[in-house]
Write a protein that binds this DNA or RNA. Structure first.
Lengths: 246, 246
DNA sequence: GCTCAATTTAAACAGTCGTTTGAATTTGGC
DNA sequence: GCCAAATTCAAACGACTGTTTAAATTGAGC
């Protein structure tokens, strides 16, 4: 990865100073094409030739502007993921300051997680919808550089939201809550990723393409109920023996 | 895909008649190595040379015994997925006949889904644990042949379990229930797939490798609560306005 | 021991991959 | 209009991909 020699002379004196020329355009064209193709075929199965052809730019442009295929993938993710997570934290802070001293409800916190994602899903002009599916798939990608990148991108947001849930659900032990937050993130990413997997289980109404909001409206209360559910005591009398005969 | 010319003479007269020789051994060695490597690197990023080297067999053995890389992948999945789903349906029938005319509880049905998965996770000798992670990742794989294969493999089981849930939760509309079943499957597959993604959210206790059961013990009640949660009426007075300001 | 089919083997096939190169071109500052 | 930096371009690099081929090896049945 020769990421230090992308530009010919990496002199620190000249800062890009907002070039409005073809530079930005080429980078954007690559990012747009890469976003859609990575979503459609995955990281490994998408070649740079496919991307650059779709973007209408030269093959070498990717390595020139981004350094490598991996760095391009990270750039595709960062472009939308970073603002979305910023939005999430800003929204959470908004709820918190509005609530004053009273603790937030699960619905508030879940809304703070879901609304920015929904905003992206609704963003028809830019390919926000494509991005959410790409993101959901990136979660399950085994490539180490993707996993490390995502966990570093999410670290701050997760910490904030875990604290919020901990405040809203003080009776639930810290470790249990961490797991439940994990389940929430998982269900969200899986749901957003699986537009065509959905056909498998929930029969689709054909022609109804714009149902991301409807899905999230079903998912959010489902998860809120799970978050609030009483903590199981393994051997308490009357509790369900989940895996007794396993 | 020249799957019709794997064996030299595909004469119908001689049936394999349970050869105990190296034949089965080579196929199994390939399946075992492929299972682990597909899990570790994903389908596209795993080369046949990597698999055959790890298995200690010749490169051409994969195409000879399985026909193609795609068919090998399907064979890896089928080997464990088919018995697991059979187990699930058998267990569900067992619960149903034990309950007689009274409807099953959500806990019963979820147990029927989870116990066979857990049995695989506990199967230390064979790489059952690896398989569950592989399966969770296959769910999110964009390759069409994987998606089509999975949905055909799951079709029967999904139908059975949707009917069971519909019986257990008669007050929940059919479409809503389909979505909740989808959330359950998603959370399960995501959780089983994400052994190293978990570190991101739930801090791991180092050295505690055998926690699949513990995770499922947390996940099952979480999902049961979600399944049972009251159906939201969009504009009912007092209901939470989930995405009002989105 | 021979036969014949099943299996294994080494080698090559025809491509595709991400990346690099050096020359051509475009760009903005003067 | 000139200069130098930024960008684009065609071409090639070596390595790796899944698959196929034909010869070599193996193992029962007779």
């Amino acid at each position: 990865m020769a990421s230090s020699t992308i530009q010919r002379i990496p002199r620190a004196s000249d800062i890009p100073v907002d070039r409005p020329s073809e530079i930005v355009d080429t980078k954007s064209k690559i990012l747009d094409a890469a976003e859609e193709l990575f979503m459609e075929h995955g990281f490994e199965a998408t070649s740079l030739r496919l991307i650059t052809t779709a973007a209408g730019v030269n093959l070498a442009a990717v390595n020139y502007h981004f350094g490598s295929k991996e760095e391009l993938f990270q750039a595709v993710l960062t472009r939308r993921l970073d603002p979305m997570n910023q939005d999430r934290m800003r929204l959470l802070s908004l709820y918190e300051s509005a609530a004053g001293n009273t603790p937030l409800t699960c619905e508030n916190i879940i809304s703070a997680m879901f609304i920015p994602a929904l905003k992206l899903a609704r963003d028809h002009q830019t390919g926000g919808k494509n991005f959410l599916r790409l993101l959901g798939r990136a979660y399950a990608d085994p490539a180490p550089f993707i996993r490390e990148f995502l966990s570093s991108q999410y670290a701050e947001m997760i910490t904030r939201f875990r604290a919020a849930f901990s405040h809203a659900l003080p009776h639930i032990p810290r470790e249990e809550l961490s797991w439940r937050l994990h389940f929430v993130m998982g269900a969200l990413s899986y749901t957003l990723a699986g537009t065509d997997a959905l056909k498998m289980i929930a029969q689709f109404q054909p022609g109804e393409a714009d149902n991301d909001e409807k899905v999230l409206r079903r998912l959010a209360p489902f998860l809120a109920a799970g978050l609030r559910s009483p903590v199981e005591n393994d051997n308490a009398p009357g509790s369900h023996q989940w895996f007794a005969e396993a």
